[in-house]
Simulated assay, not measured.
Amino acid sequence: MKMRSIGRLLLCLAICLGIGVVGSLSTKPEIAGWYAGLAKPFWTPPPLVFPIAWTALYILMAIAFWRLWDRTAPSMGRSRAMTLFGVQLVLNAAWSPVFFGWHGIRTGLVIIALMVVAIAATIFSASRVDRIAGWLLVPYLCWVLYASTINAGVVALN
């Protein structure tokens, strides 16, 4: 692998994992207090599951983005996929501060619903230019769909 490609991969990892770190700054302080006091659906996993799952997902996301950036030829399709990736990443970055930091459970539900749509659009678009990049994002979509049911449950129960 060329140095340029390695640099791009490291940048993609830094961006995606960085979003996770920023999200954890607003999440972690709220877990033992505010979040613990919320009524949650019975299918909510223990808090320890979330950082493990998200770390794996952010790594897969980074690899997918790197493949789009480094492994596909410039085209309208690639530009569309990379733009949609950016949109879903912004929504991802917004969810934790809104839900945990501001205790905006309803606004968080709107954001996560938009994330589901943006991730699905990203997968569709990415798959058209790099099938592997698209498939790398499928676990992320599945997890966010699951997380959205938890968010909806929190809204319904509180």
Rank of each mutant, 00 (worst) to 15 (best):
Ile52Pro: 14
Pro46His: 12
Lys28His: 08
Phe42Glu: 13
Gly23Pro: 08
Gly33Arg: 01
Tyr35Lys: 05
Ala36Ile: 03
Gly23Phe: 03
Phe42Leu: 12
Val21Thr: 08
Gly33Tyr: 04
Val22Asn: 03
Pro45Asn: 04
Phe50Thr: 01
Gly33Val: 04
Thr44Ser: 12
Gly37Ser: 10
Ala39Trp: 01
Trp43Gln: 14
Ile52Leu: 15
Val22Cys: 05
Ala39Arg: 12
Pro41Ala: 03
Lys28Gly: 01
Ala39Glu: 10
Ile31Gly: 00
Pro29Thr: 06
Trp43Arg: 14
Leu25His: 01
Phe50Ser: 01
Val22Trp: 15
Trp43Lys: 11
Pro51Ile: 09
Tyr35Val: 08
Pro51Ser: 10
Pro45Lys: 03
Phe42Pro: 06
Thr44Glu: 14
Leu48Asn: 10
Ala39Gln: 07
Leu25Phe: 15
Ser24Glu: 11
Ser24Arg: 08
Val22Gly: 06
Gly23Ile: 09
Val21Ile: 14
Val21Cys: 02
Pro47Phe: 04
Gly20Glu: 09
Thr44Cys: 06
Leu38Asn: 07
Phe42Ala: 13
Gly23Ser: 13
Pro47Lys: 04
Val21His: 00
Ser26Thr: 15
Gly23Val: 10
Val22Gln: 08
Gly23Arg: 06
Tyr35Phe: 15
Pro29Asn: 09
Ala36Thr: 00
Ile52Glu: 12
Lys28Glu: 07
Ile52Gly: 12
Thr27Val: 13
Ala39Ser: 05
Ala36Glu: 06
Pro29Cys: 12
Leu48Ala: 13
Tyr35Leu: 10
Leu25Asp: 03
Gly23Tyr: 06
Pro41Thr: 04
Lys28Cys: 03
Ile31Tyr: 00
Ala36His: 04
Leu38Tyr: 07
Ile31Met: 11
Thr44Trp: 09
Ala39Pro: 02
Gly33Asn: 06
Leu38Ser: 08
Thr27Cys: 11
Thr44Val: 05
Pro29Ser: 11
Gly23Trp: 07
Trp34Pro: 00
Pro51Met: 09
Pro47Leu: 02
Ser24Met: 14
Thr27Asn: 13
Pro46Tyr: 09
Lys28Phe: 07
Leu48Thr: 13
Ile52Thr: 14
Pro47Cys: 04
Val22Ala: 14
Trp34Arg: 04
Gly37Trp: 00
Ala32Leu: 08
Pro46Ser: 12
Lys28Pro: 02
Pro29Ile: 05
Ile31Lys: 02
Ser26Pro: 09
Phe50Gln: 03
Leu25Asn: 08
Val21Trp: 12
Gly33Thr: 02
Gly23His: 04
Phe50Gly: 01
Tyr35Arg: 05
Pro51Arg: 12
Ala32Tyr: 01
Gly33Glu: 03
Gly20Arg: 07
Leu48Val: 14
Ser24Asn: 15
Leu48Trp: 15
Ile31Trp: 06
Pro47Gln: 06
Val21Met: 07
Val22Arg: 01
Pro41His: 09
